Amino acid sequence: METTKARATARTAPTDHPLLTPYDLSGTPLANRVVMAPMTRLRADLDGAATPLMAEYYGQRAGAGLIVSEGIAPDPGGRIHPLQPGLDTPGQIEAWRPVTGAVHAAGGRIFAQLMHGGRNGHPANLPGGGSPVAPSAVAAPGRVHTLDGKADPVVPRALSAREARALAEGHAEAARRALRAGFDGVEIHGANSYLVHQFLADGTNLRTDRYGGPVAGRIRFAVEAVEAAADAIGAHRVGLRVSPGNREGGMAERDPAPVYRALLAALAPLGLAYLHVTDDPRYPALDDLRPRWAGTLAGNTGEHVETTRESATALVASGRADLVSVGRPYIFNPDVVERLAAGVAWAPIRGKDYHYGSGPHGYVDLPRHDAVATLRTSVSTRENAEE
C-alpha cells in the first residue's frame, strides 16, 4: 500500500500544469485545483454511520485538492437511500472522524455535502415511515430504491412556510456537527433535483407564498439555508452547489438565468468559500454565471457528461473556473491527481454496477497507476527469469 509520504510527494511535485497549482480557498490551502465531486456510494451501515471502508475509500483519494463528501442529510427526514450516511446522532458524528482523519493524514481537505432529498425520499427509507416533504405536492418520477427492492414514488407533503424556514435554519446545526466530525467545511447541495433545487425550479415549486412565486421567492430557501450555515461556522467554510437547467429527477426550469443570477446576487456579500456550478448544454451556466461571481468558482463540465483530462484542464486554463470538480473518473482512479502529475492516462469509466454496493468491490480495490506499473515490472522480471 502506498505510504502517506509517497502520496504527499506526488501531490507536491513541481509542475506548471493548470490543475496542479496550489490554491487558497478562503484561508484553507489546497494542494491543487482538483475537487473530487460528491458521489453517492452507499457504504454506510443500516444506522447511517460511516464505516471503516469509507475511511479507506476517501483516504485513497486524498490527493484531490478538496474532497466533497457524498450527500449527507442535514436531518433524518432528508434521507433518501438505505445505507446513506447521516450526520445527526452522536454515533454518526463519531463514525465520520476516522474518515476525515484519513483524509487529513494524507494531506487532503474534505467538506461535507449537506443534501436534503425532499420529494426524492420515501416512507420506507425515512424514520418512522414518515412522508417526504417538498415545496409543493409534486411527486418525483421513477421508482425508489428501498431495502425491500424498488418502490413506487409517493406524493410529498408540501411544507408550510414555518416548516420551510425551520428546515433552512437547520443547516446551521448540521454545519456545526460537520465541523465536530472533523470536516473542513460544508457544501449546501442546491443541485441535481434535491430539496434546495426543488425550491429553485418552477416545475417543483408551485407555491404562492414567500417561498414561491416570483424569483425572489424561489431563491429564498436556498439563501436562508446558506446564510444559516455561514452564520454558524463562517462563510469561508461554506460552499453551494447548483446545476441550473439540469433535468435529472424530472426537474423543469423554463428560464434558469434570472433565478440563478438573482441567487448569486443575494449570496455575493456573504463571502462564501466557493460556488460549485454544473454546466448544461441547454443553459451554459458557467459562461453566464462566471462573470457574475467574484469569488471562487468550482466548475463541472456537465451532468452525465464524462469529465476528461482535456476538458478539466481547459476549464481552469480558460478562466471559466478556478477549480474543477471531477466525479466518475474518481470512482475508477483513486489517484486522479497523481496520474496528472505523472502524465499517466486516467483509467476508463466502466458501468454503473461499480457505483453502488455494500462491499469493497469497485470501491477500494481500484488500482493506482504506480501499483499497476509495479505489477507489470514484477511480471516482466519473472518472465525474463523463467526464459
Results as ranks from 00 to 15, higher is better:
173 E>A: 12
61 R>K: 14
14 P>G: 08
43 R>D: 02
89 T>K: 12
164 A>T: 15
118 G>F: 02
170 G>W: 05
38 P>M: 10
140 A>N: 14
109 R>W: 04
157 R>E: 06
10 A>K: 13
312 A>D: 03
382 R>G: 10
54 M>V: 12
381 T>I: 02
91 G>F: 13
371 A>V: 09
167 L>A: 03
367 P>T: 14
37 A>V: 12
30 L>N: 00
330 Y>V: 10
42 L>V: 11
373 A>T: 08
115 M>Y: 07
38 P>W: 07
381 T>R: 07
225 A>Q: 06
65 G>R: 14
110 I>W: 10
60 Q>C: 07
57 Y>W: 15
334 P>A: 10
256 P>K: 04
81 H>V: 13
308 T>A: 11
294 A>S: 15
85 P>G: 13
54 M>G: 04
113 Q>M: 10
218 R>E: 02
260 Y>W: 04
35 V>Y: 01
349 I>Q: 13
71 G>V: 04
220 R>G: 01
279 D>F: 06
214 P>R: 13
227 E>H: 13
40 T>Q: 05
50 A>P: 00
315 L>D: 01
12 T>S: 12
13 A>M: 12
235 A>M: 07
327 G>V: 13
354 Y>F: 12
361 H>E: 11
304 H>P: 05
154 V>F: 12
121 G>Y: 00
95 A>D: 02
244 P>W: 10
237 R>N: 05
354 Y>H: 13
187 E>D: 14
230 A>K: 03
23 Y>D: 00
284 P>E: 15
93 I>Q: 12
334 P>C: 10
185 G>V: 10
374 T>H: 14
64 A>Q: 00
336 V>Q: 01
326 V>A: 09
97 R>T: 15
284 P>G: 06
384 N>L: 14
228 A>N: 00
386 E>A: 14
24 D>F: 11
63 G>V: 06
158 A>W: 07
226 V>H: 00
313 T>G: 03
